[in-house]
Amino acid sequence: MIQVKGLTRRYGNLAAVSDLSFSVSEGEIIGFLGPNGAGKTTTMNMITGCLRATAGTVTVDGADIETDADRARKIIGYLPENPPLYPDMTVDEYLEFVYQLKKCTLPYTEHLTGICDMAGLSDVRGRLIRNLSKGYRQRVGLAQALIGDPKVLILDEPTVGLDPRQIIEIREVIRSLGQKHTVILSSHILPEVQEICDRILVIDHGKIVADGTPAQLSERVEGAEQLNMTIEGEPAAVLGVLRAIPGVSEAVVTVEDGMKCVYRITAESGADIRRAVFDALSQHRLAILSMQQVELSLEDIFLELTGAEPAPEQTISTDETQPEASKQKKKRRLFGRKRGDDK
């Protein structure tokens, strides 16, 4: 459905996107994942024809975005990062304008009612966009992209600025859209793309660093690397025990609290040390109050992938109310491995 070949965008000497190539097949929901400034929006702007590529081509359903722009644009519905709304119009007036602008030939009343129902706008159709909350504006933006029933939907951070309930609703909408449309969405929130998308493209510094289904990507990152643990016992003794465990490369105290300190244990790469830690501590009758795998945020993963220094300190969210020793693995991490380990 979408073919992107060698897409490059330069601003002066700075390459915002360099030599990006991928293709998306019909009905696929694909997620661009990357930190801010990775080139996600630039890529989307180029796919929609908003921005001209320095080099490379984009073909949408056989229509080149440069040479066959009119046909390609009719196939694409685009929701930019800031929804392109006119605050002085009502929702109905705005959608009517977009309907005419896109030279849509579908039956007007039916089409718009359908879209408003889907985007949850039926109650606010007569209101001025200026007076709508951020969540509703986002929905109007989504409704705008849906007008004309485009085969391809490009959504730039569709859930940004929404409250949790709205995020879930929008995700539902996107998932249902995926049955009829090809969707490209971008996000810097890992669980989000993991949940909605059939396939994930990880972009950093304008390059694709990983490409695959969520399952494929998580296969690459089995095993623990860092643990946050609350252990009851004399810190010196605990540290001695921890450092003696094979596979542990480092153990430090991160929160001092008398006999109940919080420790950060780093494993040698690839090793799952959780069982070994449990065995060693129970042997020395040191109670584990909590154990948690450090979830790498996307930023950290990128820092790892790009070989930079990791973030100095992470927020520790140990569950202090849970007294008995518990092993818990909250969420599976994606591609948390150091660069070069897996290839």
């Binding site: 929609t48 024809g49 908003c50 722009a69 009119d70 046909r71 644009r73 009719k74 694409i76 685009y78 930019p80 800031n82 929804p83 392109p84 709304l85 006119y86 605050p87 977009v98 602008l101 896109k102 030279k103 705008q144």
Partner: peptide, 14 residues
Amino acid sequence: KQGTDRLLLTAPVS
């Protein structure tokens, strides 16, 4: 300013 030029530029109009 409003970012609505995106809407116009991505619409099937010249």
